[in-house]
Computed example of a mutant assay.
Amino acid sequence: MIYILVGAGGAAGSLLRYLLGNLLLGLNPAAFPYGTLAANLAGSFLLGLLTETWLKNKRIPPGLAAAVGTGMIGSFTTFSAFSVETIGLLSEDQFTLAFLYFFFSAGGGLAFAWAGLNVCNLKGDRQN
Rank of each mutant, 00 (worst) to 15 (best):
S83L: 11
Q127L: 13
P61R: 14
G74Y: 01
I73F: 05
W54T: 13
F99C: 10
G13L: 10
G63T: 04
I87D: 08
K58C: 10
G71R: 09
E52N: 05
T86K: 00
F112A: 04
F76T: 06
G26K: 07
F104Y: 10
S14H: 01
A115M: 12
M1A: 13
A65I: 08
S105A: 02
F103W: 07
G13R: 10
I73Q: 04
L23W: 12
L49I: 01
F104P: 03
A106Y: 03
K123M: 11
T96I: 12
G74E: 01
L41I: 07
G109L: 04
G35E: 01
R59L: 14
F45W: 11
N128I: 10
D93A: 15
T70N: 02
T51C: 03
L16F: 03
L27C: 04
G43M: 00
N28K: 15
G10I: 05
P62C: 08
V6S: 11
T77D: 07
F95W: 13
I4S: 14
F112M: 10
A67Y: 11
G21A: 13
G9S: 11
G35C: 05
Y3D: 06
L89A: 10
L37V: 04
Y18L: 13
G69E: 07
L97Y: 15
S83Q: 09
T77N: 05
F76I: 07
N22Q: 15
S83F: 12
L41N: 00
L49F: 15
A12W: 11
N57A: 15
T77Y: 00
F79R: 02
G88R: 10
G88E: 08
G71H: 11
G21T: 12
A98K: 05
L97S: 14
G35S: 06
L97H: 15
R17I: 06
R59M: 13
A31H: 08
L37E: 04
L89G: 06
R126P: 03
F45M: 09
Q94L: 03
E92R: 15
L41Q: 01
R126I: 08
G48W: 00
T70L: 03
M72E: 12
E52V: 02
G21D: 14
T86A: 06
L50E: 00
F45S: 03
L117A: 00
Q94F: 04
M72Y: 07
L19N: 06
F112R: 01
W54E: 09
A66N: 13
Y101H: 12
F95I: 13
G74W: 03
A115P: 04
L122Y: 11
S75C: 14
A106C: 10
A113F: 06
T70M: 01
L25K: 15
G21V: 07
G9T: 12
Y101R: 04
I2Q: 14
P33Q: 09
C120Q: 14
G35Y: 00
M1R: 09
A111S: 10
L46Y: 00
L90K: 02
A31G: 09
A42H: 01
K56H: 14
R17V: 11
S14N: 10
R126S: 13
N121A: 14
N40I: 06
E52M: 12
L55V: 15
K58G: 14
T53R: 15
E85N: 01
A38P: 05
Q94P: 01
F79D: 08
A38Y: 05
